[in-house]
Design a protein around this nucleic acid. Structure first.
Lengths: 244, 244
DNA sequence: TGCGGTAACTATACGGCGTGAAGTAAAGAT
DNA sequence: ATCTTTACTTCACGCCGTATAGTTACCGCA
């Protein structure tokens, strides 16, 4: 059973440490999946791992630190999923990419409702997000990805947004810089469009996942499809034929 | 100091009971306003009232029951606010009513962020909403109010929604019944429109209030105004001139 | 006027929570 | 072989919701 499993560059200690950290997060996500973000508890995690709750303090300074790490991981996974769905279609297919992104978003949220709550809901009792949100990086990626979608649609859509009076100073400096570097010539109105798209998608999905739509419609999927089709149309693109 | 303050129909006991119930809720809302929904605690309420935590069990069977009552109250207050803002303008001014409703929604959310979290966020640790949401009635009112807005815009907007394939069975039976009674001739596509409008507004406002927009835009108000203007335009109505 | 019922409230207790302080045993470094 | 660091446990504190039992004060009725 004695064998060399680790690389030579990391010590055995560091390896064990990494593995234990990963296990803590894995167990925490399991608890969340079965009981919601509120059931992420140091004591429950420790119980599951055959440890004492205080042992976790060797890996995370506080429960909120653990939650922050989890939020970052889950949010990053969401961003990966969305970008993968978008990049499965050619850049030229602007409408298809928006459609793919939007459905990937809803599908992910329905498949991981507790993860969605963790990211977008009020997470847990007294959790306070550390300065400017827990996962600004992933949030930024999502926003930049949406701006990419808007940029793809801009040739057709720009004519409908000439009366917008947005300015680069209306947006986060870092975000604006990235967008201007990646899409030269794209006006600030396109970023506003991206954020509005985010609002549309997030609004319907969060209402659905958090249960506020259940009492109104029996067919949230149809509502969402309709929303996306109208969104694509409003950009001057051709929506795909409706499917049941 | 001895005087008759209550009405003859309610006993002194019942009066005190009502007052105490109201005080519990009032203190709970104060705690929420200062520390978020998570700091609504039976013990904290009792402390504030100079009582024992267990005394509250005489008024609410459980902490979740209290939370449910609070959600209902706050949601009802929101619905009142929205309807009042809408009804301040004549029915003929469809665009103005949508505008008023939308801004009342955001203004309320920004003025009562903790109330917004209570209603729309994941409320508190282990809170489980009792069968179909805590405040189905207020939720219904909001939805019906939005449908009223859609109905007001329908003469101008209907032409853009002829290709929608919504059916009355796509919506909650009770909601559909009310809508058909109040707005005869209004097609189910108008209810879908109302829900989509809700999604738009809720999406941007919840992103802003829950802090997910802060890292992207420095001017969420402008973004929201733009969203509403485009929404009104997309209905074939004339948006009001933009103001700073 | 007095008595019985009941409503309102307290006292005590249990288990669970995050977290701090102190101690222990094993692993690594020298 | 000794010293240091790491991983972990034990104990403790003050929070939490809530169950059970006991106490007090008021109300209606004789």
């Amino acid at each position: 059973m004695i064998q060399d499993v680790g690389s030579a560059t990391t010590s055995r200690r560091a390896r064990l440490r990494t593995e234990t950290t990963a296990e803590i997060k894995r167990v925490a996500l399991e608890l969340m999946a079965s009981g919601g973000p509120g059931s992420i508890t140091l004591r429950a995690i420790a119980r599951e791992m055959g440890m004492t709750a205080n042992a976790i303090y060797g890996y995370f300074a506080t429960r909120d630190d653990l939650l922050t790490a989890l939020i970052k991981d889950v949010y990053t996974e969401l961003a990966d999923t969305l970008e993968a769905a978008r990049d499965a279609l050619p850049e030229a297919d602007a409408a298809g990419r928006i459609l793919a992104w939007a459905h990937a978003f809803r599908d992910w949220a329905l498949a991981h409702p507790q993860g969605f709550r963790l990211i977008y809901g009020d997470p847990v009792p007294g959790y306070q997000a550390p300065e400017g949100g827990a996962a600004p990086e992933a949030e930024h990626r999502v926003c930049a990805g949406l701006t990419g979608l808007a940029a793809g649609a801009w040739p057709e859509a720009s004519g409908r947004y000439t009366d917008d009076s947005f300015d680069w100073t209306d947006f986060d400096e870092k975000l604006a810089g990235e967008v201007r570097a990646e899409f030269p010539g794209l006006p600030p109105a396109a970023v506003a469009l991206a954020l509005r798209i985010w609002g549309h998608l997030h609004g319907l999905v969060s209402l659905e996942v958090l249960g506020h739509l259940r009492a109104q419609t029996t067919n949230p999927a149809k509502l969402y499809r309709n929303e996306i089709a109208r969104l694509i149309s409003s950009l001057g693109l051709t929506p795909p034929p409706a499917t049941a």
